[in-house]
Nucleic acid binder design. Structure first.
Lengths: 239, 239
DNA sequence: TGCCCTTCTGGTCAGAACGACACTAAGATG
DNA sequence: CATCTTAGTGTCGTTCTGACCAGAAGGGCA
């Protein structure tokens, strides 16, 4: 760790008293069943604060921006340091800079990320907990607002991009993909219509393999690498 | 002016040498005819730099974030200070933070704005010039990239929101509204189909007045205030 | 073995949305 | 008054979408 992490933000004596500091935080979404074998739910990892502003409360993973790293790199680094997670999808969400959002002036560049089931580090690091987004505790700073906004973006973006694949493994059935959509959008989708839509979109490549369960086996699909998860316009590399 | 503006960013002695500083810039779009009576073009105001990094080059209007103001307030303030413009629509675009985007470490929170024809300050302040987005000179820092991204967002957003109204006056004909869309999207739209779409969207209120020209008078419409220009989700107030 | 249950998968059908285009309305111009 | 140009309406065929039906293909169980 090259710099103090966000949790140690009590007395920034090393920095000029009147300076604005830049922090980077990330909202990480993963789908996991509420109980074993149950339906999926949108969950995210939070970090318990051990220092003064909002000590003991849960907060988004993050840390201070190092002067020698880009914003995206800072998001990846602080994510790894606090939670051990390396996400499959990472995108800038918004810059939060209300004057009163922290006792000292902090501008937070917030990213949001998606991870696949196999990327979930269950009992990775101390002070990390996974929460159902529908049952969040009161978070530190303005982090509840931030999560709300990230959720809104996730639900929006799932409708016009292919980011749902960022929440799945390499091979999956259409039923599995459909459940991802259903979980995010919180409503049932017709299996036949869903199939038609996603097949016509050209983002899926059928394989010869099948997932055998207790009923008719379902064909496994792969994600078409030629199609970007989301159209990010002229921003090919994150800044 | 309470702080040095971005143009005076040569030697920030007052700030710790290793600190990251936060700047705020804005891409302001307005539609104006290339020549009198001609078709509209997307244009934006730029400020000529008078200090060292990229002295003499054109740059986006902006300035340093004051420690006592929110990001949106800083955007409005620096906009007014450098160009005298108070936009009708202002939204955060992206935070740019590549390490090498400036000789000293600067994170720029970039906003984008729309202004109506009557809000254009033609010969307002020295060192301000208006440029056609299709004919931009090489800009300071990474500002060309930033403009490209802002244009991409503008063209995207005009398709699924009502921000086009941010570029028009209070009352307008459907032909005028259509020309706004045509200019932004750079393609012709069928007048009949355009009318049907926009009338069914419920965002327009017909008035009793008409715009009389050299042909059949066209009905004037007002913008329905009940409908937001763009759905910004949980972010009702800019941070 | 044979029946049933569930899910997978392909198909139909009606309504909405959309693009192309023909046509009427209304004022300006000469 | 004839004509020109733009404003505004209607129509038609294609595509997209949601609701629903039906056959296919396995496992579970009597």
């Amino acid at each position: 760790m090259t710099r103090t992490s966000l949790e140690n933000a009590a007395a920034p004596e090393a920095v000029a008293e009147d300076a604005t500091r830049v922090a980077v935080s990330t909202v990480i979404f993963a789908l996991r069943p509420r109980e074993p074998e149950g339906p999926l739910a949108v969950t995210l990892p939070l970090v318990r604060r051990t220092r003064d502003p909002h000590e003991g409360q849960w907060a988004l993973p993050g840390g201070w921006l190092d002067i020698r790293e880009s914003l995206g790199a800072a998001a990846s680094r602080t994510l790894a340091e606090t939670t051990g997670i390396a996400p499959s999808y990472l995108e800038q969400l918004y810059a939060f800079g209300a004057v009163d959002r922290s006792p000292t002036r902090v501008v937070s560049i917030v990213y949001w990320a998606l991870i696949r089931p196999d990327e979930i580090v269950e009992d990775g690091i101390e002070n990390v907990g996974w929460f159902d987004v529908e049952r969040l505790p009161p978070l530190a700073f303005d982090h509840n607002e931030i999560v709300d906004y990230a959720l809104w973006r996730l639900r929006n973006k799932v409708g016009y991009s292919r980011i749902a694949h960022g929440l799945l493994g390499d091979e999956f059935t259409l039923a599995e993909l459909r459940e991802v959509y259903q979980t995010i959008l919180d409503r049932k989708l017709d299996p036949a219509n869903f199939r038609r839509q996603v097949e016509n979109s050209g983002t899926l490549i059928p394989t010869d393999r099948h997932r055998t369960g207790s009923h008719r086996p379902a064909r496994l699909y792969r994600y078409n690498q030629d199609v970007e998860l989301a159209d990010r316009g002229p921003l090919s590399t994150p800044h």
